[in-house]
Nucleic acid binder design. Structure first.
Length: 411
RNA sequence: GUGCCUGUAGCUCAGCGGUAGAGCCCUCGGUUGUGAUCCGAGUGGUCGUGGGUUCAAAUCCCAUCAGGCACCCCA
């Protein structure tokens, strides 16, 4: 066997698959409780959708997209993130006419051609929500609270929610100028990548991990002073309501986010178990994206969660999960075989997860198998039991055995 | 795309010039039909791949692929 999964991709099997299912169930349940409903969009889209939404000079668009030409000659791209598709779908189906506010969630694989490392793959999975149709700071709060509740429900209580506001385009233009004026004179003291960043996206200098850069960054102005009246008020309301609602957060002026479409509130959720890629989720408001993509001026706010990263955090904080099965049916002798299959069917009809041996193994082997599969109960059915019209039910935790009437299962 | 580290049984790893080992897992036993514990036995690897050096290579050298970590970027 010399074909392996492509670089940066993973097979999810066995116990891990169970863990994923549990996680997905929780994501759906909590989102439903906030009245968000699911949207499923294609895994590939027209390339221009991502170029226009994420931004031409972002790393994702410049070098990380899986772009290919279809047989018809169109340029298609495997989605690198979820928001663009949701907005496309929103506009295409004119969802505004169905409801002034659309609260949607999605769940699925995303693709970015990057060098894999801890918490980063080429095919990875995101869960995300988008609330489209509101500019109210209350919706920001609703979305951030939903994010928190999801992590709490998953069992990840040890999270750090960091928020910031990057204001409107006008605020950012002013702030950008101010930053450039301050940084340019000291440019030779900044690291190589910051020198590069200053031309591409100055704001990235703010979250540079180089200790010398971050030391100098302490003297730089924060965006707060450059926020206009509206953005400033908006952000203050978000903070007040979060506090009133008991959502813990920290202010972090270094949060700038990578996509061009963000404005006003931005936030990231960090978890310490992750290593360098410690952002387990992130999002913010994107009031310009919908009009950029041809819609009318529409407020929107959302976030995305990296599911692989959740799994890493979950595994770090939780004990190993073990296999689980409701029942295992042990059979001895040829006459009991047919009867045992009926017993299996009846147990399954009671909505139980049931398995049994198909290979004619010894009783000892069947018991071992039951144990390995994590069976709660074992039903033993041999020729002796058939003769007496009973079945033995063994509790695998307590080792207690009961004799049950076989006829009672026939209902 | 850059740097550092690592590739030996399903898993975790030892061996570091003389043609492969441990533990776990798995399978089967430990007298008629009872698991997880205990005891015993067994299956399983062209030592990532391709070249080279050598009488001899898992072991040294080169290349390549893959993985890990970090940078970059991001979920």
């Amino acid at each position: 066997m010399n074909i392996t999964a492509p670089k940066g991709t993973k097979d999810i099997t066995g116990i891990d698959a169970k863990l994923w299912q549990n996680m997905e169930n929780i994501l759906r349940t909590v989102s439903n409780s906030y009245n968000f409903s699911e949207i499923r969009t294609p895994i590939f889209e027209d390339t221009s959708l991502f170029v226009r939404s994420i931004g031409e000079v972002t790393d994702i668009v410049e070098k990380e997209m899986y772009t290919f030409e279809s047989k018809g000659g169109e340029s298609l791209t495997l989605r690198p993130e979820g928001t663009a598709s949701i907005v496309r779908s929103y506009l295409q189906h004119n969802m505004l006419r169905q409801s002034p506010i659309n609260k949607l969630y999605y769940l699925g694989p995303m693709f970015r051609y990057e060098r894999p490392q801890a918490g980063r793959q080429r095919q990875f999975h995101q869960f995300g929500v988008e609330a489209i149709g509101s500019t109210s700071p209350i919706m920001d709060v609703e979305v951030i609270t939903l994010a928190r509740d999801i992590f709490f429900a998953l069992g990840l209580t040890d999270i750090d929610i960091r928020i910031n506001s990057i204001g409107s385009v006008a605020c950012r233009d002013k702030y950008r100028k101010a930053l450039l004026d301050k940084i340019r004179p000291n440019l030779n003291k900044y690291c190589k990548s910051c020198n590069d960043r200053i031309n591409r996206n100055v704001f990235r200098v703010l979250d540079c991990k180089n200790p010398e850069c971050s030391q100098m960054n302490k003297d730089l102005p924060t965006i707060e002073a450059y926020l206009g009246e509206e953005p400033s008020k908006h952000f203050a309301t978000v903070q007040n309501l979060l506090n009133a609602r008991g959502v813990k957060f920290t202010m972090d002026p270094t949060i700038v986010r990578g996509f061009d479409y963000y404005s006003n509130t931005v936030f990231e959720v960090k978890h310490h178990a992750l290593g360098a890629q410690d952002a387990i989720g992130g999002g913010g408001r994107y009031d310009k994206l919908i009009s950029d993509l041809g819609g009318s001026q529409t407020g929107a706010v959302g976030f995305a969660i990296g599911l692989e990263r959740c799994i890493i955090a979950l595994k770090a904080s939780q004990k190993e999960m073990s296999a689980q099965l409701d029942a295992f049916v042990v059979t001895l002798g040829e006459t009991a075989r047919a009867e045992s299959l009926q017993l299996v069917d009846r147990l399954r009809k009671q909505n139980k997860d049931v398995d049994f041996d198909t290979e004619g193994k010894s009783m000892k082997a069947q018991m071992r198998m039951a144990n390995r599969l994590g069976a709660q109960k074992v039903y033993i059915l041999g020729d002796d039991e058939i003769a007496k019209g009973i079945v033995i039910e063994k509790n695998m935790q307590t080792s207690e055995q009961l004799e049950l009437k076989l006829a009672d299962f026939a209902k």
